[in-house]
């Protein structure tokens, strides 16, 4: 079995998502970070609790799969998901992972209290959108092209007024859908440089090990087996767009036969089903763990194609 493990970021969290998380892991994290996780909607309005909970959920699933003898051949995280990805490939240990995630969340929470955020444009090409952004972007009106999840679905990051201007232009240029995301931070743009800087300082003190498998890099869309690139991605990915589209294209060249989608949610279902129509795919969020194991074991045995 040659599997690609995909770790989404925030956006699909839901109350009670930690119900089946191993309780000793939960307590470990709560003690380590000195926070209490309630796993409810209220909690998830708080950046720190939200991001820590998502990472906790992903780490729990990674641990459980590895305990059953499943290892990734490729890992791909999206934004926050890169921390669990780095953990899954053996580059980042648990303690540092949670400390980093907490720090990242704190920094993000305090960076831009208002006026900033993200938007999404569907139906324009990158070139078209870059042109529109260049017409609006200005030191007082910062806006940047951000995450690229599919060839025709691209995010914007920056000041909300500037984003709205681009969205209007986009609609005029034939975009099929435009919307402002409910995210209060201009993630994955140069506006995040100060945060990246702090993360970088912290990561410099951490030993990032050589991964056991291929790591797909958020901030370049390329693949690597070198720890220095992973370290750079963990510290700097917030400054760059997530080139998820490219990560997935590169992943196809590695010819995985099984795609394991980690919780929460299934944000990339459409693009993944197009890209990997012939591979086995599983969304851990949709099955109880024993069912997931049943399927993975069946696919491993290769009982059918």
């Amino acid at each position: 079995m040659k599997s690609l493990w995909i770790f989404p970021g925030q956006g699909y969290q839901h109350a009670n998502m930690l119900t089946h998380v191993d309780s000793s892991l939960l307590h470990y994290v709560e003690n380590l970070l000195e926070i209490h996780l309630n796993d409810n909607v209220q909690d998830y309005l708080d950046y720190v609790k939200l991001q820590v909970s998502i990472s906790l959920l992903q780490v729990d699933q990674v641990d459980k799969l590895i305990a059953k003898g499943f290892y990734p051949q490729l890992v791909a995280g999206h934004s926050l998901g890169i921390f669990a990805a780095a953990y899954a490939c053996g580059s980042l240990d648990k303690e540092n992972l949670f400390k980093l995630v907490k720090l990242r969340a704190q920094l993000m929470q305090n960076a831009y209290p208002y006026e900033y955020g993200m938007g999404i444009v569907t139906g324009l090409t990158l070139n078209q959108l870059e042109f529109l952004v260049s017409q609006v972007n200005h030191s007082s009106m910062p806006v940047y092209v951000s995450n690229q999840n599919t060839p025709d679905q691209i995010a914007l990051s920056g000041k909300l007024t500037a984003i709205r201007k681009v969205l209007v232009l986009a609609k005029k240029s034939g975009a099929s859908k435009t919307l402002v995301l409910k995210v209060p931070v201009p993630s994955h743009s140069p506006l995040m440089k100060p945060i990246a800087h702090s993360l970088c300082e912290k990561l410099d003190k951490i030993n990032i090990r050589t991964p056991n498998c291929v790591y797909l890099i958020n901030s370049s869309g390329y693949s690597t087996r070198k720890p220095e690139f992973i370290k750079k991605d963990l510290s700097e990915s917030l400054i760059y767009p997530v080139y998820f589209n490219s990560m997935i294209s590169i992943a196809t060249d590695f010819k995985p036969d099984t795609i394991i989608n980690f919780p929460p949610g299934s944000p990339f279902r459409k693009i993944l089903s197009q890209q990997f129509s012939e591979q086995h795919q599983i969304y851990l969020d949709q099955h109880i763990f024993d069912d997931s194991l049943f399927l993975l074991n069946k696919w491993k045995r290769g009982l059918y194609k």
């Binding site: 086995h280 795919q281 949709q286 099955h287 109880i288 024993d290 069912d291 997931s292 049943f294 399927l295 069946k298 059918y304």
Partner: peptide, 16 residues
């Protein structure tokens, strides 16, 4: 599969 789990019926198994 949704209601009873993949062990009950694996919806990805064409032959089944």
């Amino acid at each position: 599969e949704q209601e009873a789990g993949a062990r009950e019926f694996d919806s990805s198994d064409k032959n089944l």
